[in-house]
Simulated scan of single mutants.
Amino acid sequence: MNPFQIDSSDIQFLFDSAGLTVKINDAEQKALITNAKIGDFEDKYIHTLQPIQRGNLIEYNGENYLVISETVTQRHSKYKALIRHCNYDIEMEGQEVCEIVGYNDFGEPIYECHPTESINVPAIIDKYTFKIDDFAPIRVPENQIIITMQDNETNKSKFVVNETFEVMGQTWKVIDVDMTRTGLLILTCELS
């Protein structure tokens, strides 16, 4: 028997007895949540038995967190990742969808238009470039912010260069979309 090998039944017992039910991308799962270093953000570690990925959206205690570290392999029979609290929700208005409901006397179509449902996008908004553990982050210009959110098809289609949206009581315009961190969509935005 290898003294450095952890028995998977012990890990399972730990998750069954001390694990909390969280939502990972809207699917309930048992996880252990532990505190990370104290800093400007509320960072925590999430430990799971199933694989998790950078960009996963975690709902814990009614708050949204984003997995910001890459997690590829297991550590001691479990997966561990750093999560950060999403400090803002960006409300994106629904698009107007028009349908033909009939035709007038001249054969022209009659349209009925209605907006689709608006969505809330949990995001991390900051005035510094996105760094997890750098002691000297780079500050962006005064009229710009950095927004980090989950990389998914909805967010990719809604947050494109030159798109505008409101958050923090101001209108912002996307000037750059960085997709270099798999799972995360990192936007540079300026006041519009």
Rank of each mutant, 00 (worst) to 15 (best):
F15C: 03
S157C: 06
C113Y: 02
P109A: 04
N152E: 06
N120P: 02
I110D: 02
I110P: 03
S118D: 00
S77Q: 15
N152H: 11
H85R: 15
K80H: 07
G19L: 01
H47G: 03
K131Q: 13
N25W: 04
C86M: 05
L185N: 09
P109V: 06
P141H: 02
E117R: 13
V160C: 03
Q5L: 13
I175C: 06
N2W: 10
A18S: 13
L32E: 00
Y88S: 12
D105Q: 10
T182N: 15
R54G: 00
F159P: 00
D89K: 10
G62S: 05
Q12W: 08
P3V: 08
R75C: 07
K37V: 08
S118C: 02
L82K: 12
D178W: 06
E59N: 14
M168N: 10
T73Q: 11
F159Q: 00
K44Q: 13
I68M: 07
R54F: 04
S118G: 10
T164K: 12
I52N: 02
V160A: 09
F130Y: 08
V160H: 05
D151P: 05
N61E: 11
K23Y: 13
F165Y: 05
G62L: 06
Q29C: 06
V22S: 01
G169T: 02
I124F: 03
L57P: 03
K37R: 14
E153G: 05
E96Q: 14
R181L: 13
E70V: 14
Q53D: 12
Q50I: 07
G19S: 03
D126C: 06
S157K: 14
L32M: 03
N155G: 04
N120A: 11
Q150Y: 00
W172H: 08
P109D: 01
D7P: 02
V67G: 04
G107L: 05
I132K: 14
L185R: 09
V72W: 11
E93C: 06
E28H: 10
L185G: 00
H76T: 14
I52P: 01
N35D: 13
Q144N: 09
Y111R: 04
F135L: 14
E70R: 13
I58N: 01
F135A: 15
D16G: 08
D134G: 05
I175Y: 01
I125D: 09
I90F: 04
S118A: 11
E91W: 04
L191E: 15
P109T: 01
K173M: 14
F130K: 05
I11L: 07
S118H: 09
I90E: 06
C113K: 05
D40A: 15
V140F: 00
H114P: 00
L187R: 01
H76V: 12
C189A: 15
D43I: 09
I186P: 02
E99M: 11
L191H: 13
D7K: 09
R54W: 06
M92T: 09
P3K: 10
L14G: 01
V161Q: 11
Y60W: 07
